[in-house]
Design a protein around this nucleic acid. Structure first.
Lengths: 197, 197, 197, 197
DNA sequence: GATGAATGAGTCTTCATTCAT
DNA sequence: GATGAATGAAGACTCATTCAT
């Protein structure tokens, strides 16, 4: 830990502290303490408290997007890709609860200064979904009357709300694999051409 | 406006102010000004700033739940109920953008005092969905291998994420009716017994 | 209680409330509640919060002074008068703890606005003591090199500090009669011409 | 002044400000200004406004007690010790009017937080007196029917009330030496075995 | 680069006082 | 006279940020 880059130490500390207290109830001094640096040192690496949240989000989202795109690469069928997306997304949330909590909760809240930042990376992540749908539509695999822009939101929203369950609820009623399977089933059924609806 | 109950004036003002600035960037004095009462008057009706948010949420959710339950009463088919739920939910968001923003954004913050409050009313709202699903399963209308607890989260999550689009995005790419129709189609397809998945 | 004069009800309530919380930690509304009148009613009888304390002091001191002077009237010897003063003072404190606490504690504290008010009545009370001393000196009973102005302060101070013991300490180590006897003995010994010092 | 420890600067400033306005009419910001530090700096050294008063009292009383004990050390006779106690006490008051006023006036207020603090140090100071009396009684110098616990209160009370005169009254009718001499004479006369009473 | 003591702007909340009824 | 809802001025305290070392 000590030898690590101070920038990374602070980001890691911020994830922990923000997840525990929320952005507005977190103190820069607590992050500094958690990162084992002086209060002033935080300001050598970050412009201000907001900047910690923004850069935290951007850097972590980059990793997440890169990882998710890599996962998609080796899967041929678009329906399998969607199933895989769901599994990977929910597992990621389960394995990085603090980060997930910060991204889900804090970033929604800090609407004012977040709007622009949130969108760029967030939409890039969402577009992984719409790209799969468009690909499926192009190859005749999926119905073409489904609007990819609505689909990506709905699909992500469903996963995101399930994430909440995994992040906040203490009881473990559903396992991740099963949840991912059910939710992608709903959506794939809606995408396939011969489903009756 | 003047003749209105001060309690209601303050709640209305808080919705407006919280939606504009977020809870933590809102000043009690600004709420008071917007409600045309003195700062101290706020504290005759609410215990403190947190209490404004809590009571705002509880009271508005009560209205929303009552309204939604009323809407469901006259619809016989469970699939029609789900479609209607989607339409009513998205219309409500569109027509009460500020309230929607406060509920969506501020109430995600995980501060201690919110958790319990959020849950009670929020889960009551979610359970309107699972009740529909269970009813459909009981009457043989819906597949019985779908877990209502997962379904309600997924369905709500999809609607909630679409709401974000309507609340935050300025451009109006999709209309509410169409969005409600598409998203409920996905889920209904997943619920019907003879869909291939 | 109800039929009583509201002025008196408020004074009585103030004694109770000030004794419990201190002047600055007492609320006018609490006094009003204790007196079973509306908040605004207090201001029909008193100019403001300070005025309650001032008038409380003046009126109660008047009673105390009248009572003490009456007690002195029938006692021929100055040394007996001093002994009696001590007994009556300490008994009064014991029987009116709340009032004693307010006069001792709060009136010392509120120096700023109290100074002038305090003095008039307080000095009148002190002068009962110096009058006794002067009388004793005039009749050759007491030494004439004792300064009555110093004596009254010392004698009162000793009684006052003993009062603290009775007001604040819960344990009852000394009884009032004995304490009054000892303290007046000290001072009378000092006053008598043939004490060796 | 500037080079001094900030803690000490704040204590000194608080003595001045509290003496001038009383505790409840003093502003933390005024203390800060007087101490030439920022408002927030006060809170680096003291928990809150109450804490300033408590620590002020404890630290100054420590000095006073140490000083008084030192004064007593070189005096052989108990009656001389009492005389010296009176002189030193009254001189201390005269030379540190502000501190004396704060200790006398503010610490009488019976607020909850004060009680325990007041007692510990205050009783230690009082016990210097009773220790002298007990010593005099043990060596046969003083009468043994005098209760040291009552004596210390009476003696201190007399001095304390005289202090008030010196602190509050502007006119200088009596000088300190004479006052100390008279008041200790009263009490010593009461203590000596062959005084007639 | 690193530190952490110092800063002071900013806000929630209280409560004495008023005044329309 | 009596009420008590409403007022709004005032202040303790916090904490993001700076800067001398």
């Amino acid at each position: 830990m000590r030898g690590e880059d101070k920038h990374d130490r602070i980001i890691k500390a911020a994830i922990k502290v923000f997840a525990k207290n929320g952005f507005y109830n977190s103190r820069v001094s607590e992050i500094a303490k958690e990162a084992q640096v002086a209060d002033g040192t935080v300001y050598l690496y970050f412009k201000n408290k907001d900047d910690i949240l923004i850069r935290l989000f951007e850097e972590e989202m980059d990793k997440i997007i890169t990882n998710m795109k890599g996962e998609m690469d080796n899967i041929p069928n678009p329906d399998e890709k969607l199933r895989r997306f769901a599994v990977v997304h929910l597992n990621m949330v389960r394995e990085n609860k603090s980060l997930a909590e910060v991204i889900q909760v804090e970033l929604r809240q800090s609407s004012k200064f977040m709007h622009e930042y949130k969108n760029r990376k967030f939409i890039e992540y969402l577009n992984i979904i719409s790209t799969i749908v468009k690909e499926g539509q192009r190859t005749g695999y999926f119905r073409t009357d489904i609007m990819p822009g609505l689909f990506k939101r709905s699909f992500f929203g469903a996963l995101d709300e399930l994430s909440n369950m995994f992040v906040f609820s203490t009881k473990r009623k559903y396992n991740v694999e099963m949840a991912a399977d059910q939710v992608s089933s709903f959506f794939i059924a809606g995408l396939l051409p011969d489903s009756n609806h």
